[in-house]
Design a protein around this nucleic acid. Sequence first.
DNA 1: AAAGTGTACGAACGATCGTGCTATTGTTGG
DNA 2: CCAACAATAGCACGATCGTTCGTACACTTT
Lengths: 200, 200
Amino acid sequence: MPVDGRLVRGDATRRTVLKRAADVASVEGLDGLSIGRLAAELELSKSGVFALFGSKEELQLAAVRFAGEVFAASVVGPTSEVEPGIGRLRALCENWLDYSRRRIFPGGCFFFNVGAEFDARPGKVHDAVADASRGFAAFITGCVQEAKDLGELQADVSRLAFELHALGRAANADAVMFGGTEPYDVARACMLDLLTAAAA
Amino acid sequence: MPVDGRLVRGDATRRTVLKRAADVASVEGLDGLSIGRLAAELELSKSGVFALFGSKEELQLAAVRFAGEVFAASVVGPTSEVEPGIGRLRALCENWLDYSRRRIFPGGCFFFNVGAEFDARPGKVHDAVADASRGFAAFITGCVQEAKDLGELQADVSRLAFELHALGRAANADAVMFGGTEPYDVARACMLDLLTAAAA
DNA sequence: AAAGTGTACGAACGATCGTGCTATTGTTGG
DNA sequence: CCAACAATAGCACGATCGTTCGTACACTTT
């Protein structure tokens, strides 16, 4: 099966552009992205970068998809190696705090920043970001439900999920804004408390 | 008492500009502000608006200060009418959720959006936003401490404050992103649970 | 070999940005 | 009355934005 060398090359540069775009957007926002600046930093031509995506909005959407892959690979994916139940739930929390603390994106959690940026605007980018956020919230809820079904904890599922979600986001926000890693420690302690308090 | 009519006039238009600026920034961010657009919407000249603030950064800083006044008047101020202790703490939570739900700023909490926008950038605007955030966090912590000192609850003060802060921010984020008011109900229930669980 | 397609470039476009400069107008204090 | 001053307007600037167009090259398909 012969691969098309043109498409391979295109996808390669697309990915380098998207990596940089996601990194920049985690700090300056998806609107702070400029095609010209991306091109200059990567030593490509502005029109070349533009042609790879067709429009700035498509570039933004592609950046959201790319960041979603990174997030899934860092936070969600590794939980499948842990037995379902309270253990997996704990692993999810750890992975998430680690993903933010280790600055996989230089501006902290990509979806926290971009979510706040597009939460009140209409359009495709909002919808894409909202879908991603909803998906992650649903995954947390699913893990909590799983642990409850296994009889490992008894709690209001959606409320516990909301609390865990809230703690993680707050830790990211405070740590990025003020520096230091203490918010992660506080959030983690709160999360563990919540889980042990709900343990059956 | 002589008042300078020129300064009065200037301050008046400054305030109308700042109100609009804060409203826009709560949706599009402080970087999404443009002096020309503000001037057009308010039927002023671009150079006139510019001259009132001297630079875009000064306009942004003034908008942060203005939003701080609004926030203080909506959330923090009214708590002084409630007796210190758990009652004041509860009022603080209610005020805060109400301030977000009633969309005092059309994009939800001004400081949530602007905080996420500037959390990872250096500069005066970051510092101003960080100071405001720190101040509010300190106020929450102070109220918790007060309630503890009065013997009305026993808890790890900074941790309880962090949890309440996290719940409020999460409620604002979800409600603005997805619409509806359910996140406020969930957050409020969680807050009350936390307070009654810690009640002495 | 020819035709077609995807990547990449350079140049140019209209629009908008922040920011100067130069009035003009209305208010103040001497 | 007059000189100083603040608010506001008009105009122009250089820069940057997203986008379009024409073109050159690499590669695939026929």
